[in-house]
Design a protein around this nucleic acid. Structure first.
Lengths: 131, 131
DNA sequence: CAGGATCCAGTTTGATACTG
DNA sequence: CAGTATCAAACTGGATCCTG
């Protein structure tokens, strides 16, 4: 859900849990933030490579929403070929404990595709890398 | 998003962050878990009262999904009038650190409707309690 | 390289009305 | 009380094609 929920750090009708989740909403914000937290500044295609299942349209969209929410900054360099850097804002960085908690729970309770826990489960049949 | 993403604790194509978020997906799972963590067992209408903006249809649906995911247990008491108790499973309780992180970030960075931070912001215009 | 613009199917959600 | 059923609106995300 990325509807009229919280857009900036203003008023959100509901509880803090839902408020926070509304910022992470959409299919890819979590991973995007995760990668920016881990690796710092990344270019558009660098992000794409790290999230193989995302389409450009969606990556663009989610990045725009993160930007609007004040969590991610977008820097366009006037060079050719074009170069656009994405980075976390100071506010975005405050989400680190949240992303960490999400990652920890996930790695402890779910068998994930791109995680270092991959040793536990043999890649039996391939479970669809995209949706 | 509550599509084919993770349903049980089985394989999830993607990173742990996204895997965890997929369990919290949908508009109300976060709040539901939050209330069950804070108050323990709750009946259907007790939950409704704590989440004024949710419709019965949605509350039912999200509870069913949480049940299917193994995070919430549903106990039907054969009495009249009907009584159904919802509670966290042991697995559901392991989400506590996650929900805490979400709640903490939300209460620090967003002005929420039903939070104890309400003193900070005077209820100026009423911002729509539902969507 | 980094998108923008369309088209479109699949889902999610809300509103309402009804029931054991 | 605790739902179920139905209709319809809203939004999502994927696929394609195009551009400075």
């Amino acid at each position: 859900m990325s509807r009229p929920r919280a857009k900036l750090i203003d008023y959100f009708p509901g509880c803090p849990v839902e408020a926070t989740l509304s910022f992470l909403d959409g299919k890819w914000k979590g991973v995007i933030l995760h990668h920016l937290l881990e690796e710092g500044t990344l270019r558009f295609n660098e992000l794409r490579r790290r999230i193989p299942a995302v389409t450009q349209r969606m990556l663009t969209k989610q990045l725009r929403e993160l930007e609007e929410a004040g969590l991610v900054s977008r820097t366009v360099h006037a060079v050719v070929p074009p170069r656009v850097d994405y980075d976390l804002t100071p506010l975005g960085k405050t989400l680190e404990p949240v992303i960490s908690a999400l990652r920890l729970w996930g790695s402890e309770h779910v068998m994930c595709g791109d995680d270092q826990v991959s040793a536990v489960m043999p890649p039996q049949q391939k479970v669809r890398s995209a949706a």
